[in-house]
């Protein structure tokens, strides 16, 4: 199931294709990346607030639970380390690249017309401009797969986190009747998520808040993983070496800064408004 959504999600590559199809002024685009211009009505704080939001969106804490639990469910051993590394080394940069492509599309088409993106459907406008109906069809399939996949991921993660913390039987490899509480948690999560949608709250605002809060919570998942990675009882021959720990510590500082800065920035900028 996750593979289907993952494969269909690859259709989002159409955003990257669109960037080229739109024939942008590359020099201009590069200049905007290297010397970002902050609009007059926004402050540098707003810029950094959204930077943290993007950071939180890329590194949501639940992903750690999702991927590690999936590895347990599929009975991974050290032989699967290669697959795990491939996920990280290919998968994450690919996701990042697609995010950049979506941002670039918006910059090329929407920004010059002063169009403020307020709904998901607006993000596909550049794709339509680049490749018409065919590109739009790809984008729709990709977006449905990506959002559906993300919904699966977050729902499962909710179940994994609670069940593992409390010692309940869990996992997709058990009959639902053998892991009743785990499955009930997932049902409740889906119902609660749908209930939030049915209130008149703006889904984009909900997303913004949730990614900022994931940036705030990030050290709470990153640090324990770093500690376990240094515990030879868990890791055996694969315990973190000095070089890994050095990079990991640098990263820990970045995560801490983002986490500590998130709430003050949220207050100062009125949550980016």
């Amino acid at each position: 199931m996750e593979n289907v959504t993952g494969m269909l999600g690859l259709m989002l590559i159409v955003f990257a294709v669109s960037v080229f199809a739109l024939h942008p002024n590359w020099g201009d685009l590069v200049h905007q990346v290297t010397a970002p211009a902050i609009p007059d009505k926004e402050s540098a704080a707003t810029y950094w607030y959204f930077a943290i939001a993007l950071f939180g969106a890329a590194m949501t804490p639940y992903e750690g639970f999702f991927f590690s639990s999936g590895a347990v469910e599929e009975h991974w051993t050290t032989k699967d380390l290669g697959t795990a590394r491939l996920n990280v080394i290919v998968g994450f940069p690919l996701g990042g690249l697609l995010s950049i492509a979506i941002a670039a599309c918006a910059t090329i088409v929407l920004l010059p017309s002063q169009i403020d993106v307020t709904s998901l459907s607006q993000t596909v406008m550049p794709v339509v401009a680049a490749g018409g109906k065919l590109f739009l069809a790809f984008a729709i399939v990709g977006i449905v797969a990506a959002t559906f996949g993300a919904a699966l991921e977050t729902t499962l993660s909710g179940g994994y986190i609670l069940a593992q913390f409390l010692g309940w039987p869990w996992g997709k490899f058990r009959r639902p009747a053998e892991a009743a509480r785990f499955h009930v948690v997932m049902i409740v999560t889906i119902v609660a998520g749908a209930a939030v949608l049915y209130t008149d709250v703006d889904p984009i605002i909900v997303t913004e808040y949730s990614v900022v809060f994931s940036a705030i919570a990030l050290p709470l998942t990153y640090l324990p993983i770093l500690i376990v990675a240094n515990d030879s009882e868990y890791m055996g021959d694969h315990t973190n070496g000095r070089a890994t720990n050095m990079f990991a510590s640098v990263y820990l500082v970045i995560i801490l800064v983002a986490s500590v800065a998130a709430i003050p920035l949220m207050i100062v900028t009125g949550a980016g408004q």
């Binding site: 039987p169 997709k172 009959r175 639902p176 009747a177 499955h183 009930v184 049902i187």
Partner: peptide
Amino acid sequence: DAGWMERWLCDRVIKHIPGGRHAAE
């Protein structure tokens, strides 16, 4: 003793959902 909650949820909720007793993937 997985607790009354696990048994109760299993008997009253999960078993009645189509596929609730199916073998997993």
